[in-house]
Design a protein around this nucleic acid. Structure first.
Lengths: 138, 138
DNA sequence: CAGTATCCTTCATGATACTG
DNA sequence: CAGTATCATGAAGGATACTG
C-alpha cells in the first residue's frame, strides 16, 4: 500500500493535456483506425461513422499538432490528403490498446454498477418523496 | 499492418464513455491518489490541489456510480466519509498507470511537436499576411 | 476531395454562498 | 466535515453552407 507516486502538481499539469486527448470524443478512435495504415480524409470519415467533417478536421489537426499523425497533401485535382501515424503515434497505440482491452473486458461490470447506483438513487429519492437533485448519470 | 480491430460502432459506443472518464479533468488523478489507500473527502481535496469542492463531489459520485470507489459514511459529528478503491478500481489502475507512464515518458516530445507545429502555422499565416483562422492550440 | 466559415446548443468546470 | 444550491462562463461538439 506504500506506492507514493510522488504526485507533483507541475508534472501532472503537463501530463493532463495528454490524457485529455485520450478522453476526447474522437482521437482514440482515429488513432486506432490509422493503426491499420495510412488513410485519406473521407475514408477515415466513413470508417469512423457519425463524425462531422468539422470534428474530423479538428481531431486530425490536434493529432498532427501533438506529433501523432502526419498529413501529406498530393497537389492533384481533386486534392488528395493522406494521414498516417508517426512512430510516436504507433507507440501511443500500445498503452491505448491495453486501456481499450481493459474497457472492453469491464464495460459490462461498469454498466451493471451504474444501473445499481441509479436504482439505489431512485429508491432514495422516492423514500424522501422528492425529485432527485444533481444527477450523475451522464 | 493487418490488424483488423473489428471496429464495431455499437461496441465503441459502449467503450467510449469509459475512455471519456479517463479523459475528464480529475478522475484519473483521484483514482491514482486513492491507489495509496482510503482517504477522507478533505484529505483528497488537499492532495489533489486546485479542485473545487463541487468538482470533487461530482468526480467521486461519478467514480462511485461506475463502481470504481466505495463511499463509507461514519455517522459521527462532525461527519466522516471515507472513499476507497474497489477491486474494479484497482484493476483500472493497471492500464491507467501504463498510460500515465507513457505520457510521462513522451510529454516532452509532444510539447516539442506542438511548438514546431505552432511555429510553422505562425510562419504560414505571416507569409499570407493574415491572421490565423481556427486555432488548434488548446 | 478536403477542407473553411458561421452559427448554435449543450456540457463541463468554476465561484460563491449556505447547511446538517 | 462534507456536502448542496445557484449562477456564470468558456469550451466542445454539431448543423449547415460555401470553396479552391
Amino acid at each position: 500500500m506504500e506506492q507514493s507516486h510522488t504526485h507533483v502538481p507541475s508534472e501532472c499539469a503537463r501530463v493532463a493535456p495528454v490524457l485529455s486527448r485520450i478522453g476526447d470524443k474522437w482521437s482514440v478512435l482515429v488513432v486506432m483506425l490509422l493503426g491499420d495504415g495510412p488513410m485519406r480524409f473521407n475514408e477515415l470519415r466513413r470508417r469512423v461513422g457519425g463524425i462531422s467533417q468539422r470534428m474530423l478536421t479538428l481531431t486530425l489537426r490536434g493529432l498532427e499538432r501533438d506529433g501523432f499523425v502526419t498529413r501529406t497533401v498530393f497537389p492533384t485535382i481533386p486534392p488528395r490528403v493522406d494521414y498516417e501515424l508517426t512512430p510516436l503515434g504507433h507507440s501511443l497505440l500500445v498503452p491505448v490498446r491495453e486501456l481499450g482491452a481493459w474497457a472492453v473486458r469491464n464495460v459490462s461490470v461498469i454498466e451493471d454498477a451504474q444501473r445499481r447506483f441509479d436504482q439505489a438513487a431512485k429508491g432514495q429519492s422516492q423514500s424522501l418523496e422528492q425529485a432527485a437533485p444533481m444527477s450523475f448519470a451522464k
